[in-house]
């Protein structure tokens, strides 16, 4: 039963409610880092990592600190500072422990603080009991949701990067080059992803 629910969450966050293509979150890195496939992969992995970790930390923080002391109105300020601190910490730890990993992910980490998808996942984790409001799954669900959202983001980023690498060879009108054609492509992608919304799970 529980495994089925986790599967539903993963499917829902990766395909049906894709953060970039259906919720319109995290557009800035989606435009900025989707020029080449390898940098897209690096950014995607960094986002998966930070999103999972953020979900793991913000959920108990909300439940046992903010709700407990009746200060839920401080949620925005607390979450964004936690994310900022977390990203800094992860950057420092990775630099000390694994220089190889740091070379791959390092330059993307500072960009993640201002990625609205990360704060979005932290807020959505607590605001909605998606996908089934009648079962309280708690921390584990948050983490799975965070992980799935990261994977969904990465998937969209990789597809986009693949398309843009080919698009460089295409003959695009001068004024349509760059961001405008990327948005039009993203629109077609979003349309394709919209097909998943009819899926019954």
């Amino acid at each position: 039963m529980e495994i089925r629910i986790f599967f539903t969450i993963l499917l829902s966050t990766i395909l049906i409610n894709n953060y970039v293509l259906s919720r319109n979150l995290g557009i800035c890195p989606f435009l900025g880092v989707s020029k080449r496939l390898d940098s897209a992969l690096g950014m995607g992995l960094a986002v998966i990592f930070v999103m999972t970790l953020t979900s793991f930390i913000t959920h108990p923080l909300y439940k046992y600190v903010l709700v407990e002391y009746n200060i839920t109105y401080l949620i925005t300020i607390v979450f964004i500072l936690v994310i900022a601190a977390l990203v800094q910490l992860v950057e420092m730890v990775i630099r000390k422990i694994s220089p190889v990993l740091y070379q791959a992910l390092g330059i993307f980490l500072p960009l993640i603080t201002a990625n609205c998808a990360v704060l979005g996942v932290a807020l959505l984790n607590i605001s909605s009991g998606f996908p089934d409001p009648n079962v309280d799954l708690g921390l584990l669900k948050s983490v799975v949701q965070g992980f799935g959202s990261g994977v969904g983001f990465t998937l969209a980023l990789l597809i986009m990067a693949g398309i843009r690498e080919r698009l460089e060879l295409a003959d695009v009108p001068e004024n349509l080059k760059g961001v405008p054609i990327t948005f039009l492509t993203a629109g077609l992608l979003a349309l394709a992803f919209y097909g998943f919304s009819g899926m019954r799970i």
Partner: peptide
Amino acid sequence: TAGAGYGGN
């Protein structure tokens, strides 16, 4: 009562 819709509960 609540149910899971497309954009949330």
